[in-house]
């Protein structure tokens, strides 16, 4: 990450020193520090455990995430699935997975025809930049999937 300081106002050694404190901040956040991490394979396994041998399809599902998250503690996320939400054709559930967190599971949301609209908004933690996966299970047995990449800015200046 580049430091774009006006060197007329802050001396070079100040900048280097402050950049140093940034590194300290990275290692001291410790949201999930020191534990095994999930990876794309762990997410793939979690999805297989959930949907069995079914094939997932692209389309009909939209994942709304910032391209760059200001802080990994609270990243707004919304998922919307296209569906008539009728008693014979509706979205049963949406599952969210993280490829770079200590565990793949984030949340599951269950809908009914009485939901009217298969959309949910929430906020999630991301320990680092990673891919987020959303899987929708439809009442007709079909499965839709989408994946988005999010860059996570570390920290938040100051204690």
């Amino acid at each position: 990450m580049s430091v774009q300081f006006n060197t007329q106002n802050i001396r070079r050694r100040d900048v280097l020193a402050l950049a140093g404190t940034g590194v300290v901040a990275v290692s001291s956040i410790g949201l999930f520090a020191g534990d095994a991490m999930a990876d794309p394979a762990a997410v793939a396994k979690a999805i297989k455990d959930r949907i069995g041998g079914k094939k997932s399809m692209a389309g009909n599902i939209t994942l709304e995430l910032p391209q760059i998250a200001e802080n990994g503690n609270t990243v707004p996320i919304a998922v919307e699935v296209e569906s008539p939400m009728s008693s014979s054709d509706y979205v049963k559930a949406v599952h969210i997975y993280a490829e770079g967190n200590p565990a793949p599971d984030v949340a599951t949301f269950r809908f009914t025809p009485d939901s009217g609209r298969a959309r949910v908004s929430t906020r999630m933690r991301m320990i680092k930049s990673q891919n987020i996966v959303a899987v929708a299970e439809m009442s007709n047995g079909k499965v839709h999937m989408v994946k988005n990449a999010v860059k996570v800015t570390i920290g938040g200046c100051g204690g």
Binding site: V3, Q4, F5, N9, I10, D14, G22, G156
Partner: peptide, 19 residues
């Protein structure tokens, strides 16, 4: 050896690392 003003007057709008 930095003042409040060094960051918040002289460098408001600039990035210090990712912040």
């Amino acid at each position: 050896d930095m003042s409040c003003a060094n960051c918040h007057v002289d460098n408001a709008g600039n990035r210090i690392r990712a912040n």
